[in-house]
Simulated assay, not measured.
Amino acid sequence: MDYGLTPELEQFRKEVREFVETHKPDVPVKAGVRSADDADELAVLKEWTRKLFEAGYIGADWPERYGGAGAAHSPEKDVVVGEELARGRAPAAVQGAGLLVAHALIDFGTEEQREKYLPGIRSGELVFCQLFSEPGSGSDLASLRTKAVPADGGFTVTGQKVWTTNGHWADYGYLLARTNPDAPKHRGISAFLLDMRSPGVDVRPLREMTGTSDFNEIFLDDVPVGSDALIGDLDNGWLIANSSLAHERSAVASAAVRLQQDVDALKELARRTIRYGCPAIEDGAVQERIGELQASVEALSALVYANIGRWSRGTERPHDAAMAKLMFSEIGVETARFALELAGEDGILVEGDPQVVDGGRWQDEFLYARAYTIAGGTSEIMRNMIAERGLGLPR
């Protein structure tokens, strides 16, 4: 459901929808944030990224001199693009981390860094990964232990990163490392650009229960990093990371669209599934459960647009993002679980089995859905943020 969009934005939506329908690549869209299966698929996604940049559908919030729309950019358009990519079941740009580092460079980097990296991000040729999370430093990212020690001409980096999407494909990493162990934990971190081909970088893909290897663990053993790879000021990495992350506002809006698609597909599954000699959709209990999921998705969509409205007016609340993230991740788990329940015995089949329902879509959704309750802050952390920052409850 769409809320409060102007005629101008509706016209823009129509243009984006036509573009996606005409140009989207023939790449299977899987649940969650995934990597290319092979080099051929990576090349297709790079080309798709280039087309999205050229059309002005991503990178529009960059300054004009770097190819963006500058002051003419409307943040609401980013939300529309995210929704239409989801509605058209088109893959996102391969440059998820690249978009983050682009904003870090635009806001804090040197002109030399911008000239070196931004064109490659726009063309899709340079693939970045995000080297933030560590074992034991996920939701509490500021407790990270990877260290960058001053050395001749720059720094030497030692540590470990994990859950690194596209790490096995990446040319560069957007790295956070501790540069001042004596400072408070939020103030002793710096941001770097790390060449993933540097000596001492060991990338190990992690096989997930989905059967794919979308992210990796990265071991950094005395990796040399030049002083020209430092983004902004030394020990200012926490501010830089949070500033770049704040530019990503459309993810939950697109997730709400995908959840609506899942509920629509769930209704179709209930119409096709026979229980006790009748379509499952005729069962009152099934109707009630689907109705609950539909109402939850509508509530999430309304919340997302309310958040967007507050953000555009400068009245955003500190718990807004946590509420939306908690809702979409929990709804995703419940939707996938109910689909497998409807499928009955066939729910245990996997992609490739002749009788698998909907090509294995629901199994993939179910296996991935729980990850969203962990990535980007666990549901428990989100509830704490809502309680403490929104309701003013004690820690």
Rank of each mutant, 00 (worst) to 15 (best):
D364A: 07
E334I: 00
E316H: 04
E341V: 00
A339P: 05
W311N: 10
G359E: 14
A375T: 13
V357S: 07
D353Q: 09
E380P: 11
A321M: 05
D346K: 14
H319Q: 13
Y305D: 15
Y368P: 00
E341G: 04
S379Q: 10
G332I: 11
T315N: 04
M327F: 03
Y305W: 15
E334Q: 10
E334F: 00
V333I: 06
L342N: 02
G314L: 09
G347T: 03
S379H: 08
E345N: 09
S379V: 15
E380T: 15
A375K: 12
T373V: 02
D346V: 02
S312T: 13
G347N: 10
K325R: 07
T335P: 01
E316R: 06
D346T: 05
G332M: 09
A321V: 06
Y368A: 09
F328T: 00
G309F: 05
V350M: 14
D346F: 11
T315I: 03
T378F: 05
K325V: 01
R370C: 11
R361T: 11
R313K: 12
T335S: 06
L342V: 01
D320K: 03
L326P: 00
R310F: 08
D320M: 05
V333Q: 05
D358L: 05
F338T: 00
I374C: 07
R317G: 00
A306N: 13
A369W: 13
T373C: 11
L340M: 12
V304N: 14
L326Q: 07
A369T: 14
D358M: 04
P354Y: 08
G376V: 15
E316F: 06
E365P: 00
A369K: 11
L342C: 02
E316T: 03
T378R: 07
G352N: 06
D364N: 12
I348Q: 09
E341K: 06
Q355V: 10
A375P: 00
A339D: 07
A371H: 12
S312M: 13
G376D: 09
I308S: 12
Y372T: 12
V356G: 03
I374N: 12
G344T: 01
R361F: 11
L342E: 02
R313I: 02
T373R: 15
G360P: 13
T373A: 08
D320Y: 04
V304P: 08
D353V: 01
V356K: 03
T315F: 04
D364E: 12
S379Y: 04
F338V: 00
Y368H: 12
S379T: 15
D353W: 07
A322I: 07
S312C: 09
R337M: 02
K325S: 08
L367V: 11
K325I: 03
I331T: 02
W362M: 08
A343E: 13
V350E: 14
A375C: 05
E330C: 04
A336P: 01
M327K: 06
P318H: 07
L349T: 03
G347S: 12
A306G: 13
R313G: 01
I308E: 15
E330W: 01
I374F: 12
I331S: 04
L342M: 02
E341T: 01
G344I: 01
D353G: 03
T335E: 13
A324L: 00
I374G: 01
Q363F: 12
D320L: 02
V304M: 09
E345L: 13
E351R: 15
W311E: 15
L367Q: 10
V356R: 02
G360Y: 14
L342R: 03
E316C: 04
